[in-house]
């Protein structure tokens, strides 16, 4: 993914034009997972390529100098989406973002994810960049992460020795680092059945359209009357990893949603995040965005602006 999609710093030097600016690597296109695992074992310095929209830029900027590139684009079992028993959905990790948006099941049943995918990068990048690539880059600002956290998605990791599954929350370890072992491939993202009647809102704060998120907030609410029965909140670009805002969830669940509750939830969200100041924004501003956007999302989703003036 490009900087726009995955957080490569803007100041990264670019490759010299018209010349190959990289040290050499071998390019492999396995067609089965088994073959891919074998290549990973043979080339300890190999980089996995899904969409490649981030990887190629980083290689050309010499941030990465892999001895080999193992492309996951020709492995059929990594692409597509399939309904699961229990009403969930399994998304192949190497499915391009644009393909996910063409699927009615994704758009209708997981609208929070669709909202985030639509504002990710540009059409050109969405046609190529993949869900798994976005997650494995583990950028704090990965657009797909907050909605997937709110849906309590799990990731499936497979190696020649077996298969394991983790909550997405445990997959992220820090900026650019994940729980994936070098021998493993992220094969799928598994979404549980969406809570019935859930109301959702994704907000991405940015300066211009193509920007990386300065901060992002994903909110999922299930209400019974005015009482919050379930709340799932997550935020991006405001911590070393995309964050699930559990303190806010605990505060909201079981409570009657009022404007005061929304204000308090916003305050709690602001204290739950740990943003930094970098070239895109400041820590204070990001914290403020989280506070305001959580509050406004709750007001909007609970229909509070009709009752008493919007804050």
């Amino acid at each position: 993914m490009t900087r726009a999609a995955a957080g490569v710093p803007r100041c990264a030097p670019r490759g010299k034009r018209g010349a190959v600016a990289t040290s050499g690597f071998a390019y492999h296109r396995p067609t089965t997972l088994r073959e891919a695992w074998r290549l990973l074992a043979e080339h300890p310095g190999a980089a996995l390529l899904a969409g490649g929209t981030d990887l190629l830029v980083r290689i050309r900027a010499r941030e990465l100098q892999p001895s080999a590139v193992v492309s996951l684009r020709s492995i059929p079992e990594l692409a597509g989406a399939a309904a699961e028993r229990g009403g969930g959905l399994r998304l192949g990790a190497a499915t391009p973002v644009a393909d996910l948006l063409r699927r009615a099941t994704v758009v209708r049943r997981y609208p929070l994810l669709a909202q985030a995918l639509r504002v990710m990068a540009s059409p050109q990048i969405r046609n190529v960049a993949t869900l798994g690539g976005n997650l494995c880059n583990a950028s704090p600002c990965a657009d797909t992460a907050p909605p997937l956290l709110a849906y309590e998605a799990r990731v499936e990791l497979r190696s020649a020795r077996g298969r394991r599954e983790l909550p997405l929350e445990e997959f992220f370890r820090g900026p650019g680092t994940t729980a994936r072992r070098a021998s493993e491939i992220l094969t799928a993202v598994r979404l549980p059945a969406p809570p019935p009647g859930a109301r959702v809102l994704f907000h991405k704060q940015r300066r211009v359209h193509l920007d990386l998120a300065l901060a992002s907030v994903a909110v999922l609410l299930r209400l019974q009357g005015t009482t919050c029965r379930r709340a799932r909140l997550a935020a991006g670009s405001v911590g070393p990893t995309p964050l699930r805002l559990r303190a806010v969830e605990r505060f909201l669940e079981g409570r009657i949603l009022t404007e005061e509750v929304a204000v308090e939830a916003g305050r709690l969200a602001a204290t739950a995040v740990s943003p930094i100041t970098d070239l895109r924004s400041t820590a204070d501003w990001r914290r403020r965005i989280v506070e305001v956007r959580v509050r406004r999302a709750l007001v909007e989703l609970a229909g509070l602006e009709r009752a008493g003036g919007a804050p």
Partner: peptide, 8 residues
């Protein structure tokens, strides 16, 4: 549409 600069 794709970016030819990002396409292996």
């Amino acid at each position: 549409a794709v970016n030819a600069c990002l396409y292996p």
